[in-house]
């Protein structure tokens, strides 16, 4: 009996904790959605209301029609998809080499790559910006995509290598005896097997790039036409006054693609994150 009560209390406590964490995580999202349907005067009143007095869907229409939403959205899609593609390509190749080949300094190079995770992008802004100026890449799409790819590589290599380490070498040797070159082993054996990691890296990278704000603002300093969505919708934020309903509507719209990608790939993602954790 005592055991049952203890179990019940323990279960109840953990559920309460999980509910609290969920509320803390979900509240900003729900608040964003709620605000996106409000009128400006309703937001600015001194009385805070959670539920809008009336649902103003035209906030969304305004954002889409008047704020170059389509253009910013397409910019973001372009930056995100090319970055994801770049990260998947370079990280998987590098991880294949780090995992399955021996060469002098292999460990040192690997730890150098991984060590770059310790440097936050803002910490490298000034040298990066100077470098991009010298390469004539400031205010260009390439000037944004290249640092984006670089920023995602270290973590992606780490994930890919962990996964490739678990693939038995005999599989590669069998492929070699079957007539595969190293390149074909990578393309025809390693990559098809790495689907869970491809999905995981895609989601992590896409989320990071889609939500990235600061680097885009710095690199595209004088070409607003190339802004990604996250920078573009900030036009609703003024110096003295911020148009919260439209800003929130824009942010709500910006959230949809990443949410869809996550829902589509989440089953792979769980496999990818736990890959190598359990001997199967």
């Amino acid at each position: 009996m005592r055991y049952k009560i203890e179990n019940f209390i323990r279960g109840a406590m953990s559920h309460i904790l999980l509910w609290m964490v969920s509320i803390v995580c979900l509240f900003p999202l729900v608040w964003m959605l709620s605000t996106s349907f409000k009128r400006m005067d309703e937001v600015n009143t001194s009385v805070l209301t959670f539920w809008p007095k009336e649902f103003r869907f035209d906030n969304y229409v305004t954002v889409i029609r008047e704020a170059h939403f389509g253009q910013y959205f397409m910019n973001s899609v372009f930056y995100t998809s090319l970055t994801v593609l770049g990260v998947l390509t370079f990280a998987s190749m590098a991880a294949f080499v780090f995992s399955k080949f021996k060469f002098p300094g292999d460990r040192l190079f690997f730890y150098l790559f991984i060590g770059s995770m310790m440097i936050p992008i803002p910490g490298a802004f000034i040298p990066l910006f100077i470098l991009l100026i010298k390469l004539n890449l400031v205010n260009t799409r390439l000037g944004l995509i290249l640092p984006y790819i670089n920023s995602g590589l270290a973590f992606a290599i780490y994930l890919f290598k962990g996964f490739f380490d678990e693939i038995p070498n005999e599989l590669l040797e069998a492929a070699e005896l079957d007539g595969c070159t190293k390149w074909k082993v990578y393309r025809m054996i390693m990559i098809p097997l790495a689907k869970p990691i491809l999905a995981t890296v895609s989601i992590f990278t896409a989320m990071a790039i889609w939500n990235e704000y600061l680097l885009a603002l710095v690199i595209m300093i004088s070409r607003p036409v190339l802004f990604p969505l996250q920078v573009g919708i900030m036009k609703f934020q003024g110096v003295h006054i911020t148009d919260y309903p439209h800003l929130m509507a824009g942010m709500g719209l910006a959230t949809i693609p990443i949410l869809v990608i996550y829902l589509l790939l989440q089953r792979f993602m769980i496999k990818g994150v736990t890959a190598g954790a359990i001997k199967g």
């Binding site: 005999e170 599989l171 069998a174 005896l177 079957d178």
Partner: peptide, 19 residues
Amino acid sequence: PAMDRDIAMVFQNYALYPH
């Protein structure tokens, strides 16, 4: 190279391509 020796090998853990 291994691929040009015209040799086939059967491994202990089968080494079948899972996909």
